[in-house]
């Protein structure tokens, strides 16, 4: 199996570097879509979980528990097969179905990130704002959220890194991400290990440098208060 390992890697890279690059692009795109829309949906869920309106709160709580308590792969299957059934008119592509599944999954985690970020702000801040006469909403938007953002942004960065790895599950449906390209190359070159190593290194480089970026962002934010 390890015969010709070096030369094989070289062959794989030479022949398919374009494919891997495209795969990495899709992986990043999928991750970006996931975290971007996951953040919007997740923030809405966090708002619902903080609301005093019981049904909204219960709905959001149930949703978060459900999404965090079932495997992502199962959710991918669910959305992949159910969405075209439920919304046939939209004519959703494979990529869209998988993206939506990832967004709905990530939103549950983002909801908790946002909630934790808000809770980490000293309650004394809200009290000080309220004693000045600010309404609950004004205290939230003027005082709490600007401080919570410093906790939330780095955590969202980490979520992005996690999602990059999780999108590999999307390759189950051949949506063109990095892991999909691995399957393609494996099938055409009849090599198992070499393309796996190449793809692994690409994943690692992506997550490694993004993590570093997140860390430095986090440090910069800490320093500014």
């Amino acid at each position: 199996m390890f015969d010709n390992f070096g030369p094989n890697i070289a062959r794989v890279l030479e022949k398919y570097w374009g494919l891997f690059l495209q795969g990495a692009g899709y992986t990043l795109l999928l991750s970006f879509i996931t975290v971007f829309f996951g953040t919007i949906l997740g923030s809405a869920l966090a708002l619902m979980r903080r609301s005093r309106f019981k049904p909204a709160n219960a709905l959001a709580t149930g949703y978060v528990e459900l999404m965090r308590g079932t495997p992502l792969l199962l959710q991918l299957y669910f959305f992949y097969f159910m969405l075209p059934e439920l919304l046939p008119l939209l004519n959703l592509s494979k990529f869209a179905c998988v993206s939506i599944a990832l967004v709905f999954n990530s939103a549950a985690y983002v909801c908790e990130i946002v909630r934790a970020g808000i809770q980490a702000v000293d309650p004394g801040q809200t009290e000080a704002a309220r004693t000045l006469g600010l309404s609950a909403r004004q205290a939230m938007t003027r005082i709490v959220l600007p401080q919570a953002v410093k906790n939330i942004l780095p955590a969202l960065g980490n979520e992005f890194v996690t999602v990059i790895k999780e999108t590999s599950l999307a390759s189950t449906f051949f949506v063109g991400d990095l892991m999909t390209q691995y399957s393609t190359v494996r099938g055409t070159m009849f090599l198992v290990l070499e393309p796996l190593v190449v793809v692994g290194v690409i994943y690692f480089l992506l997550t490694f440098f993004l993590s570093k970026l997140v860390n430095s962002l986090e440090r910069r934010m800490k320093a500014s208060d």
């Binding site: 004394g124 000080a128 309220r130 004693t131 006469g133 600010l134």
Partner: peptide, 30 residues
């Protein structure tokens, strides 16, 4: 509450605002 000022043991000044903004926030807003 606007007419009752309150000062806390742990200050609770707003760390994301400048000293001046800490003071002007409420008068301008409210």
């Amino acid at each position: 509450r606007q007419k009752m000022g309150m000062v806390f043991q742990h200050f609770n000044v707003f760390p994301h605002l400048t000293v001046l903004q800490n003071i002007t926030l409420a008068p301008v807003l409210l």
